[in-house]
Design a protein around this nucleic acid. Structure first.
Length: 629
DNA sequence: GCTAGCTGATGCCCG
DNA sequence: AACGGGCATCAGCTAGCG
C-alpha cells in the first residue's frame, strides 16, 4: 500500500473560551465548542455550535460525520494533547458516546509518556478501532530533533517555517476566539478551515517516512512516531526470534560506555577549511570488526544492518533517477528513514531495555571509532595540515600549503582514506572559505556562496534570547569576512535598541520548554533536588494549564543587572509596549558579557601587526600568523 | 553585608 | 524509555573581603 492510497482526514477544533481551557472535567460553563473544521481528499467541512446548536448535538454530528467519511487516518495538530482531550471531556459531560471506531466501538484512551531526544512528552494515548491517529505536533518534534530549525511548534509557526501558509490565510488569535464568535463568526470558521488545510500540508511533508516504517516494523502506523528507534529495532529481533521459535534473552544490566572522540585544537578564525568524515563510522565498525550483540545467536543484527545499508543505497539511486516528483519524494523518505535506522543500531547496543543489548560491544565500537579518527588526525598532522576541530567521525582542518586546487584536495583525501582499514571509508564532506572555531561542538562556517552555518548550543541554542542569537550571527559573519572593525558599531546599535525599547519583547524574551510536570517540579523544590526556575514559577502562576513539552516565553524585570530571575520575570504575553518594564540593565549586561567572550577576536590586531598569540584558554595558534612568525 | 568563584541541576545541541 | 560528550545559565553556597 502506498501513502497516497490512505484515506486521510484532518480535524481541528476551536473552542469558545480556549484561554480558560482546563480538563478533563473542570471545564467552565462558558467553554463551548464553536467550530470543528474537517478536511479530507473529498472536500472540506465544518460544524458550528454555540448559541444556536447544543454542544451535545454538535458532538453527535461530529461522530456521524467521521463515520460517514470513514477515514483510515485522522490527522490533527495537537490532536492528542488538545483536541481529543477536549472532545473526550465535553462528550463525557454531555453523555455523548464517541463511537468513532469502524466496529462501532468508542474512543479509548490512557495516560502515556514518550521521549524524543531530551524532551519528555506526556500525553493521553488514544485508540480508535480500525483507524490511525497522527498528530503533526509530534511529527514536528521529531523533525526538529533532527534539524534543530523550528522556532516554535504552533501550527501557524510551522506552516510559515515550511513556507506553506496561504497568502490569504485568516488568523484569529486564541485569546480573541470569543470576540470572533460574537462579531465575525464567519472569519472564525475560515480560520478553522485554514488550520486543517495547513495540517494536511504539514502531514504531507512529515508523515510519509513513518508510513514507510509501518511497513517495516511490527507496529501500527499510529504507534510508529510514538516509539523510539531502539524499541522498534528490538521489535524486529522479537519478531524473528518468535518466528523461529527461539527463546528471547533478558536485557543485560546497563553500565558506562565511553563515547566518541571530541577535541578542539584551534580556537579562532581560520581560512580555507576542509571537512572530511568517515562514512557511517559506527555501522561500518560494527560490520568490519564484528562488534555485534553477543546474545544474538541467529545473527539477526548483522543481517538487518547489512540489508538496510543495501536498501538505502538502492533507495538513494532510485530517488536520484526518479522521473516524477511523487516517486522522488517517496524514495527520499525511504532512504532517509533507512539512514536514521542504520544509525540507531549502535544506540541499540547500549539500550537499557533492549533484549539483545551488549554494552561490551558498544564500548568496542566507540573505542575503535576513536582509534580510527585519531589515526586520521595523526596522518593529517604528519602531512602538515592544521587540525581545527574533531567530533566523533569528522575533522575540520586547514590543508597543507601544497594543496591548492580541488584536485589536490581530492588527492589528499584519497591518500588519507588509503591508510584506513578495508571497509572504513572516508570522504570530503565540505570545503569552506572561512571557519570560526569557538569551543568544542561550537563553530561557524562560511560557505562559498556566503552562507553562514552556525553549530553548537552556545551559539545557536533556542535557549538563547533572540537578541543574543542575532548578535552572534552578525558578529560571526563579520569575523569570518574579516570585517571585524564593523563589530563595535553593531554592538552600539544593539545597546541602543535595548535602551530605547526599540524592539518587541520577543527579541529579549527567553523561551524554554517545560520538561517536568508542575507537580514534579514542586516536589523537587521541596526536597531541595533543584533550584527554582523562572519558567516553572510563571507556569504555576498562570491561568492556563501547562504540561511537559509546552514552551513558555518570559522576560526579566527589575532595575538592577543582577536580579534573581525567578522572582523578577513576566510572561512575554503580559508585556505592554506602552509601559515597557523589561530590565534594561540586565539585558545590556548580558550583551556586554557576550561581547567580552569574543573580545579577543574582535579586538585582534591586524594580522601583519600581530606578534603574540593569546595565552589564555586552550592551546592556540593563529592561522593569520605566518609559520615563520 | 557583599561578592567572586565554585557546584550541581537543567536545557539545549553535536555527531 | 537509542548512545555519550559538550556548553551556557541559573540558584545556592561559601570563603574572603571591607
Amino acid at each position: 500500500m502506498r501513502f497516497r492510497d490512505l484515506k486521510r482526514m484532518q480535524v481541528d477544533i476551536e473552542t469558545y473560551c480556549q484561554e480558560c481551557f482546563t480538563f478533563p472535567n473542570s471545564a467552565r460553563e462558558s467553554d463551548r465548542i464553536t467550530a470543528i473544521a474537517m478536511s479530507d481528499s473529498a472536500g472540506w467541512g465544518r460544524l458550528i455550535s454555540g448559541k444556536e446548536l447544543d454542544e451535545g448535538d454538535m458532538l453527535r454530528e461530529f461522530v456521524k460525520e467521521i463515520c460517514k467519511r470513514d477515514p483510515d487516518v485522522i490527522e490533527g495538530h495537537n490532536l492528542i494533547r488538545f483536541d481529543l482531550e477536549y472532545i473526550e471531556a465535553r462528550a463525557k459531560r454531555h453523555k455523548v458516546a464517541l463511537t468513532l471506531g469502524r466496529d462501532g466501538s468508542r474512543l479509548g484512551g490512557h495516560a502515556a509518556r514518550m521521549q524524543i531526544a531530551e524532551r519528555t512528552i506526556t500525553y493521553r494515548k488514544y485508540g480508535i478501532f480500525g483507524r490511525h491517529i497522527i498528530d503533526t505536533w509530534i511529527l514536528a518534534q521529531h523533525y526538529d530533533v533532527a534539524t534543530r530549525e523550528l522556532e516554535s511548534f504552533g501550527l501557524k509557526d510551522i506552516a510559515r517555517q515550511f513556507g506553506i501558509a496561504g497568502a490569504g490565510r485568516t488568523y484569529a488569535p486564541g485569546d480573541k476566539t470569543s470576540w470572533y464568535f460574537d462579531h465575525d463568526p464567519d472569519a472564525l470558521f475560515r480560520y478553522a478551515l485554514d488550520n486543517v488545510r495547513e495540517t494536511r500540508a504539514i502531514a504531507e511533508i512529515l508523515s510519509p517516512s513513518y508510513f514507510v516504517e509501518a511497513q517495516i516494523f511490527p507496529y501500527s502506523y499510529q504507534n510508529i512516531p510514538l516509539r523510539g528507534n531502539a524499541t522498534k529495532i528490538d521489535a524486529l529481533f522479537l519478531r524473528e526470534y518468535l518466528h523461529q521459535r527461539r527463546s528471547v534473552p533478558y536485557p543485560n544490566e546497563g553500565r558506562d560506555v565511553a563515547g566518541g572522540f571530541t577535541h578542539m585544537e584551534y580556537q579562532g578564525a581560520a581560512q580555507r577549511v576542509l571537512h572530511s568524515d568517515v562514512t557511517s563510522l559506527y555501522p561500518s565498525v560494527m560490520l568490519v570488526y564484528n562488534y555485534l550483540p553477543q546474545k544474538d545467536e541467529l545473527g539477526v543484527f548483522a543481517g538487518l544492518l547489512c540489508d538496510l545499508r543495501g536498501f538505502r543505497i538502492k533507495a538513494k539511486e532510485l530517488a536520484r533517477g526518479a522521473s516524477d516528483d511523487e516517486s522522488r519524494v517517496y524514495f527520499n523518505a525511504l532512504q532517509s528513514t533507512f539512514k536514521i535506522l542504520i544509525n540507531s543500531f549502535y544506540g541499540y547496543l547500549g539500550f537499557q531495555m533492549g533484549h539483545f543489548n551488549d554494552f561490551e560491544a558498544a564500548n568496542q565500537v566507540t573505542a575503535k571509532g576513536r582509534e580510527l579518527i585519531q589515526s586520521a588526525i595523526g596522518w593529517l598532522k604528519d602531512s602538515q595540515a592544521k587540525i581545527i576541530e574533531v567530533d566523533t567521525d569528522g575533522i575540520y582542518f586547514v590543508p597543507p600549503e601544497n594543496v591548492q586546487t580541488e584536485a589536490d584536495e581530492e588527492r589528499l583525501i584519497a591518500d588519507l582514506a588509503a591508510i584506513l582499514p578495508k571497509g572504513i571509508e572516508l570522504e570530503l564532506d565540505g570545503r569552506y572559505p572561512a571557519m570560526f572555531s569557538y569551543k568544542m561542538k561550537n563553530y561557524a562556517l562560511l560557505d562559498d556562496q556566503g552562507r553562514l552555518r552556525i553549530k553548537g548550543s552556545g551559539l545557536r541554542s533556542r535557549g538563547l534570547e533572540l537578541f543574543q542569537r542575532e548578535w552572534l550571527e552578525e558578529m560571526l559573519r563579520l569575523l569570518l569576512k574579516n570585517e571585524r572593525e564593523k563589530i563595535p558599531e553593531i554592538y552600539n546599535r544593539f545597546v541602543d535598541d535595548i535602551d530605547q525599547h526599540r524592539r518587541p519583547i520577543s527579541w529579549l524574551a527567553k523561551t524554554e520548554t517545560l520538561q517536568d510536570s508542575l507537580e514534579t517540579y514542586q516536589a523537587k523544590l521541596k526536597t531541595k533536588k533543584r533550584n527554582p526556575g523562572a519558567p516553572y514559577e510563571l507556569a504555576l502562576k498562570a491561568e492556563r494549564r501547562y504540561q511537559p513539552g509546552d514552551q513558555i516565553s518570559y522576560y526579566v524585570t527589575g532595575m538592577k543587572a543582577n536580579v534573581r530571575i525567578n522572582e523578577n520575570c513576566k510572561l512575554a504575553a503580559d508585556w505592554d509596549a506602552e509601559k515597557p518594564d523589561e530590565n534594561v540593565e540586565h539585558y545590556k549586561a548580558k550583551l556586554r558579557e557576550l561581547y567580552d567572550k569574543f573580545k579577543p577576536w574582535i579586538e585582534l590586531e591586524k594580522p601583519s601587526e600581530q606578534k603574540v598569540t593569546l595565552s589564555t584558554g586552550p592551546a592556540q595558534f593563529s592561522l593569520f600568523v605566518p609559520e615563520s612568525g
